[in-house]
């Protein structure tokens, strides 16, 4: 099997009438941590949603672990299970009655038709182990509506962890956390990355965090402006081409 978890070739995505993402190509290797950076409206979330099949794409090809994502967003179910996705601002409706145990269990199941009580024992065990690893076992029977921001993120990480995965996709995963919560969250993520051998693809606004942790950076502003190591991709010249000169002057003053 190739060392690439994900290959994207010439991806173009329209949102309504405008081009949100144009002719983007890149690939992700096993066990690496790649950040997508770029200003608001640069198409970062659109890119991620298109490679997951949530949004339709205009043209281009997407291969997950060597399997092609169909035009209509269909992908081999076994491949799907190896990808975990944490959407931006996971703002589910807090009026929905569901406990942390139930939420995490949803990540464990393959979603074909089956009896609700099938594999109950294995599911419970997997949920327990996942919650243990994110230090949230005590939250299991809590309804989600009662969780704090940090607890919610841990529950969602348990949802990702409950089944072995190859790749974790984070869309501004730390949004909504305070400084302390954010640093705890990333510490947990990188600890789990070590343990699980995950590759990570994340959207981030925190360029310092990106410099510290990521192996590769994709600078996106509709087009892929540059990609490479953080030192190269986040050099002042490249930042100007992605964010515009105003932003870079601002960052140098502070």
């Amino acid at each position: 099997m190739s060392a690439e978890v994900l290959v994207v070739e010439g991806l173009t995505v329209y949102r309504d009438a405008y081009v949100a993402v144009q002719d983007v190509s890149f690939s992700l290797e096993v066990g690496t941590d790649t950040a997508i950076v770029g200003p608001n409206g640069a198409g970062k979330s659109t890119l991620i949603q298109a490679i997951l099949g949530i949004l339709p794409r205009q043209s281009g090809d997407v291969f997950w672990l060597g399997h092609s994502l169909s035009r209509r967003g269909a992908l081999n179910a076994r491949v799907r299970q190896q990808i975990a996705y944490l959407p931006q601002n996971f703002l589910f409706d807090r009026r929905i009655p569901i406990t942390v145990n139930e939420l995490v269990a949803l990540g464990w199941d393959d979603l074909g038709p089956k009896l609700p009580w099938a594999n109950q024992k294995q599911r419970r065990l997997a949920v327990r182990q996942a919650l243990e690893r994110v230090d949230a076992l005590h939250l299991g029977s809590q309804p989600i509506s009662r969780l704090s921001g940090g607890e919610t993120k841990r529950a969602l990480l348990a949802y990702c962890l409950v089944r072995p995965r190859r790749l974790l996709i984070l869309d501004e995963a730390s949004a909504g956390l305070d400084v302390r919560g954010e640093s705890d969250f990333y510490q947990l993520i990188y600890q789990l990355k070590q343990e699980q051998g995950w590759a990570i693809l994340q959207i981030s606004h925190d360029l310092d965090m990106v410099r510290k942790h990521c192996d590769r950076v994709l600078c996106l502003n509709r087009l892929l402006r540059c990609q490479g190591t953080p030192d190269y991709a986040l050099s002042p010249d490249n930042l100007v081409s992605v964010y515009g000169s105003e932003f870079v002057r601002y960052r140098h003053q502070h």
């Binding site: 949530i54 179910a77 589910f92 409706d93 569901i98 269990a105 949803l106 199941d109 979603l111 609700p116």
Partner: peptide, 18 residues
């Protein structure tokens, strides 16, 4: 049931899970 719950909770997440 599980697909229905996931769809109710968060549709993009449900699609990403296949």
């Amino acid at each position: 049931l599980r697909s229905q719950i996931l769809l109710t909770l968060h549709e993009p997440l449900a699609i990403a899970s296949g």
